[in-house]
């Protein structure tokens, strides 16, 4: 279907354009403004050019946060994607179990992000938490406030707990969209459960799984509230991810210039990833139509 050519359609987009421009463009201008100035106080500012950018790009702690971020996102995806698909495959196809599964899965997604942190704080603390006390009673010292490894394990557990349901819901929706005759044909062809998965379910889920993968990558890349509540970025800087570092810089130390330069670099990284995301999505759409 060809779309109608009509530039008057702009009037329909105008409200969205205005509201997003207000929320996005004006603040971004402020950030750009800060990133090239040194600010001592009201009315006292000096133009410093690309200095903050140079400093930021050379900031060792930023590099660490960036690698930490990639490692975290990568590990999380490695667990969440297969687990989510497995859950979707095990979910019932009809009956009351469908509603029950959907509601249960969606539950963690609707909990405010800092409450997620709180839940896991309560759950994993060695003194009052079920998880923490069980692990400790098994003779393994577990304390996410002291050991970086424990902090990472806790964060990963929390992230997997929080977001695997999203992958599962997407995968489930993809599975339900496969027409029944494919399964019938596979049965007649004598396909094993694995062959059915490998050659029917997985290819048919490709679209939703791509979306799930990219969404999960982006969102885990921007993670802030949950680790902030649970570990506050510590112990040390072991769980200081990009967003946490940025907020520390901007709000904690009020280093506006470096924070702004950091913001712009951060945003550009996300923008680049977002562009890849968009391209891949377009291709997925095209592949299905062909």
């Amino acid at each position: 279907m060809e779309k109608w050519d009509n530039n008057k359609a702009w009037f329909l987009v105008l409200p969205v354009f205005a509201i997003v421009a207000f929320s996005a463009v004006i603040p971004l201008m402020t950030v750009v403004n800060y990133s090239v100035q040194d600010i001592f106080g009201p009315g006292q500012r000096v133009f410093v050019g690309a200095e903050w950018f140079k400093a930021t790009l050379a900031d060792r702690r930023l590099h660490e946060a960036l690698w930490r971020q990639f490692l975290f996102s990568g590990l999380v995806l490695l667990i969440e994607m297969p687990l989510g698909v497995m859950i979707a495959l095990a979910m019932p196809k009809r009956g009351w179990g469908v509603s029950f599964s959907l509601v249960t899965l969606a539950l963690p997604l609707l909990i405010p992000w800092n409450v997620i942190g709180t839940i896991w704080l309560i759950f994993t603390r060695p003194d009052i938490g079920l998880f923490g006390s069980i692990i400790n009673s098994m003779g393994i010292a577990f304390d996410h406030t002291a050991s970086p490894l424990d902090a990472w394990i806790t964060l990963m557990l929390m992230e997997v707990w929080h977001w695997t349901p999203l992958v599962a819901l997407l995968a489930y929706a993809g599975l339900r969209a496969i027409p029944e005759v494919y399964y019938q044909a596979a049965k007649i062809d004598g396909a094993s459960a694995w062959a059915t998965f490998r050659y029917i379910q997985l290819p048919k889920m490709r679209g939703v799984l791509t979306i799930a993968l990219l969404l999960r990558f982006m969102d885990s890349f921007l993670i802030y509230a949950e680790p902030f509540v649970l570990t506050g970025g510590g112990p040390g800087n072991s769980t200081t991810f990009l967003s946490i570092y940025l907020v520390k810089l901007a709000v904690g130390q009020f280093d506006l210039g470096p924070a702004a330069a950091f913001s712009i670099i951060y945003f550009l990284i996300v923008l680049a990833l977002c562009f890849v995301f968009y391209q891949v999505l377009q291709n997925v759409g095209r592949g299905e139509k062909a």
């Binding site: 997003v20 004006i26 603040p27 990009l242």
Partner: peptide, 23 residues
């Protein structure tokens, strides 16, 4: 425009924190 709108879905909230406060 459509792409630009989408980028905002992906924008790191932390980036906008301070400018929002000032705005």
């Amino acid at each position: 425009i459509f792409f630009w709108l989408l980028t905002n879905r992906m924008a790191p909230a932390a980036v906008f924190l301070l400018p929002f406060f000032q705005l």
